[in-house]
Structures are given as structure tokens and as C-alpha cells.
Design a protein around this nucleic acid. Structure first.
Ligand SMILES: [Mn+2]
Ligand SMILES: [Mn+2]
Ligand SMILES: [Zn+2]
Ligand SMILES: [Zn+2]
Lengths: 156, 156
DNA sequence: ATAATAATGATAATCATTCTCAATAACTGA
DNA sequence: TCAGTTATTGAGAATGATTATCATTATTAT
């Protein structure tokens, strides 16, 4: 599983070596649209690349995040979760977190209003505080379908 | 520093005991509009309530969060940060995080578009996935005024 | 192929947060 | 007010995710 060629490019262009662990991790991320944690990625990678170490998974994930190939998220469950940037690129989206079971779903909305709102907020932020916005994230908290029946809220 | 009376109410009404540590923590949060971390809160509380233990700070913060008196945030610096809910109540706001120095500023916007957008997204989320949104958070990432001059991005 | 050195793997070390449990302080009702 | 019942606390150990070390190995340029 050498992983997509465009990804190798990004790495070598950025001056990083194209190693086996990196390719495999990238590949695992590519085949799993979910938001995997470092440990989950470790297990997957371990399947066809045994010798891998957790440290390498973390280092690689950090490198990929810094390079912009991967997005790092914190959904409040105590561990970071990662998502291939190209995945998000094919349609920016936000996330909905179920406060009961922790489920996370990508929410690739079709509302166009967002662009305007963000632009307006960005302008305001810039004028009032001199900030320059580069990106934003919206998290929705609530109950997923399954959890709506068996109510009695939970954490967060 | 007994702390606001309305807060005591909330605690006793919820069936919790009105203890000295709780009142002091609540008071510290009330006097510090910033987004304090558990450790920072611990130091402040420690000033006029020495014997306090970190465990109690965490436990209390968790209790207050679960009770809805306090909001818990994760701005990506590796530690949770807290904010008195009443503070947010007097004007809901979002946060801007500087990706260079980590500074966080409350962004109490005056744009009204947000309500509509969120409503629209909520409707879509409900129809497509059966989710029921209870709240949402928007984080803006970028550079604060001070960090815009000395460029060369940073983390996250 | 060889040299130069970035990357890895095993492991120890951090750090924030949680758990354990005996001691203590809040509430209750007499 | 006082004793009884328990929630709460404080100290310290324990946990769990993430980082740092460092000798060994793999990648890349020559
Ligand atoms: Mn996603
Ligand atoms: Mn705030
Ligand atoms: Zn759920
Ligand atoms: Zn800054």
C-alpha cells in the first residue's frame, strides 16, 4: 500500500523523506474516512507494517498536520483525532458531536450562507481586534438519532 | 469572598453542599473574565484558601460544568480552560485563537446573521441525520495583531 | 556504493486529569 | 444546639495520552 502519489510529492517537496511508515499511515488515513485516533491508526498500520512504534505514529501525525496534509481535531473524548486534509478538501465540512455516545458525524452542509457570515465576522474581528482569520471550525453539540430515545443526557 | 448568592442557590437547589472550596472557586471565576486553566484557578484559590487540593479544583470544575454554571473549553494548548456561564450569558460569544502565541479573545459579535445560519444548519442536520442540536461553538484561528508583524506561523 | 543525516523504535519521562481512601465538614432532624 | 448520616475534601498514587531520549537503521544525494 504505497499510498497516493500526490501525497508523496507533498512530502518530498516539503523536504521530508519518503519513508515506509509515512506512506502506510497516509494510506490508512486515506482508506478510513472516520476520524481516527493515534492508537486506532497504530492498530491499522500495525496490520501490514508490524514493527511500527507508537512514537512514530505520533511524530508522523504531527508532521502531516504541520505540513497541512492532515487535520487534527479534539472532540472532547480525551484523545486527538485525525482526518486526511484531501478528504475535507473535496467538500469542507464541520462536525456534530453527540453529547451522549460521543459519535461524530461529518456535516458537509450545502448552506451557502456560511461564507457570508464568516466573511462578515472576519471583517468585524479584523476591525475590532486587528485579528486576521485564517480558518474556522464549527462544532455542533446535541443528540444523535439513536440517543434521542434513551434520553437522560450525559457528559460534556 | 462568599461569592454571588444566586450561585449558591444553583448549587443547593441541585442538591449539592455549599462548601467553602466551591464558593471560592466560583468567586475566583467570577473575578477573572479570562479563560483560566485548572492550575491557574488553583493558584488563585490557594491565595486565600491555602489547604485546597488540585483534586478538589478538578472535581469542582467538573461539577460546575455538569451543572451548567461553568463552561469548559479546549483551545488546543493541552489543558482545559473554564469560564463562568453567567459571563457568557450576558452576551453569547465565540473565540478567536492566535495560532502563534495562543492568545484567546472573546468575540462577542454583533452580527445577527448567525442565528439564521445556525437555524438553517440545524434544520439540515436534523433532516439529514436526525440529530438534535443543543449548542454550537465557533473557533476562529489566525493571527492576533501582535503576531502579524513577526510572521512565520507556528503550531496547530 | 558510500557518506551524511533524517527517521525510527524501544523506552523512559511528562503532564494533565482521575482515582483511592481515610479524615473532615455540611446538612438534617431531634 | 448536638449527634448522626454522608457528601466532600486532601494527599498521594495511578492513569492515559503524548513527548523526549538516544542508539540503530533507512533514505537520499553524490
Ligand atoms: Mn470530518
Ligand atoms: Mn470566552
Ligand atoms: Zn449518540
Ligand atoms: Zn498572537
Amino acid at each position: 500500500m504505497p499510498g497516493p502519489p500526490w501525497l508523496r510529492q507533498r512530502l518530498t517537496n516539503a523536504g521530508f523523506r519518503l519513508t515506509w511508515p509515512r506512506q502506510v499511515i497516509l494510506d490508512v488515513l486515506g482508506q478510513n474516512p472516520q476520524h481516527l485516533s493515534a492508537e486506532e491508526i497504530f492498530f491499522h498500520v500495525h496490520q501490514f507494517y508490524p514493527g511500527i512504534g507508537m512514537a512514530t505514529v505520533y511524530r508522523t501525525l504531527d508532521l502531516l498536520t504541520r505540513t497541512g496534509l492532515v487535520f487534527k481535531f479534539d472532540f472532547g473524548d480525551g484523545r486527538s483525532r485525525y482526518e486526511l486534509a484531501s478528504e475535507a478538501a473535496k467538500g469542507p465540512h464541520h462536525h456534530m458531536i453527540c453529547t451522549r455516545c460521543g459519535r461524530i458525524i461529518d456535516f458537509g452542509h450545502s448552506i451557502d450562507e456560511e461564507g457570508e457570515l464568516i466573511a462578515a465576522l472576519g471583517k468585524e474581528l479584523s476591525e475590532k481586534h486587528g485579528f486576521k482569520i485564517n480558518s474556522h471550525r464549527i462544532h455542533f453539540y446535541g443528540l444523535c438519532q439513536d440517543c434521542q430515545s434513551s434520553s437522560t443526557e450525559g457528559k460534556r
